[in-house]
Design a protein around this nucleic acid. Sequence first.
DNA 1: AAGTGGTCTAGACCACAAA
DNA 2: TTGTGGTCTAGACCACTTC
Lengths: 238, 238
Amino acid sequence: MTNKYQIIFNTIVDQIKSGEIPPNSLLPSENELKEQYDTSRETIRKALNLLAQNGYIQKVRGKGSIVIDINKFDFPVSGLVSFKELADKMEKKPRTIVNELSLIFKPDAYIKQQLQLSGKDQVWKIVRTREIGGKKIILDKDYLAAKYVPSITEEICANSIYAYLENDLNLKISFAKKEIVVEEPTAEDRSFLDLEGFHNIVVIKNYVYLEDASLFQYTESRHRPDKFRFVDFARRTQ
Amino acid sequence: MTNKYQIIFNTIVDQIKSGEIPPNSLLPSENELKEQYDTSRETIRKALNLLAQNGYIQKVRGKGSIVIDINKFDFPVSGLVSFKELADKMEKKPRTIVNELSLIFKPDAYIKQQLQLSGKDQVWKIVRTREIGGKKIILDKDYLAAKYVPSITEEICANSIYAYLENDLNLKISFAKKEIVVEEPTAEDRSFLDLEGFHNIVVIKNYVYLEDASLFQYTESRHRPDKFRFVDFARRTQ
DNA sequence: AAGTGGTCTAGACCACAAA
DNA sequence: TTGTGGTCTAGACCACTTC
């Protein structure tokens, strides 16, 4: 990616992260940046808008672009967060156990409805347990529309399914809808997880869409409530 | 707001919502729209980017802009959702009980830390219970930095604090950080809510920032787990 | 009045998809 | 090859903040 505005964005992000541009100070004005980077103002504005969208600056008309104190925001800008990223953040060695990997020829009504399938579409079902600090904390149930995923192995499931879909199959994930609810643990939860007397399960239902707006993955991520944490960053648009 | 790109955005949103432009079809190309609206392509692109960011279309290079089936997404695009909007969606008459409204001269260490206050800043504390279907379901604890809010009444708290801040005080809220965790109920939760034997509380911690990136409100929204539902819409950027 | 960011224009060239 | 969206330019005018 050699886009000019991307390069400018990355440069400024590095300067903010390193402290070269301190928090609560103003960025150079758009006209100054235009000269600095020898480009047009609209290109500078694209870079600055990216910075604003990602929580690095706050633009104020008539004043300038204020650098936000990123130490206040020790979290990734909310997005499509996979388990591996989460575990990395927690600095504990996570372990993934693949409990099931199967190709379902006749998906049941619930899955059909969730994946909006019709007729004889097949579905990959993957059940994984996530272990953190020696305890089984998360139960992940993934359903992938088979028409997009010809094959998948246990090894891939033990690592990152996302990486496989994006890098190897070159599927372009464009957006996802997340729903968070709290449920009673099922028998499955009790058998797969170390519940230790907890009476609730936090369920994250994730609907993942491809570039052409077709739904291809449904995931239920079932967390022990004490280890669950979700962070969201909402920016007012307009 | 008479911005051209806003008008175009609104026009197309209406056309999509009314079904005039059906789901999964393509929008007219940017060049066609440019002619239609007698404007420049960049202005059209601004409107289309707004549509994409708000989940109405999906842009694909070389193809066009696909209209997303909004019936799949029966939710507000995630953002700064206040309680009233939530209750409206649920179509049950909500009732708000104001349990406490006080100006704290010496906020304790926890609040000081959450609101990043120093010295002798004062803080409004507001505690409200939300009743839905005759049951006390949500306990909202709001802390407002008093330097931004000179006065506030019980009546305002019974309605929408947001509306008061935005419309009357003209405070411009620009972004918010949300954190969701599950906790054990406190004695306060037990006394204010109809817990009915539930063993967990879903806590939404909300940090609200003004246009100049200063933190001015901290809110804890404590929900009975069975009635809690959070929806998020994550769009892959770039 | 001067400087800031917000909107808008009319062009240009490029990368990608479909026919 | 044609048409699509993605990037980029060099200007213009406007709304707002600060002095």
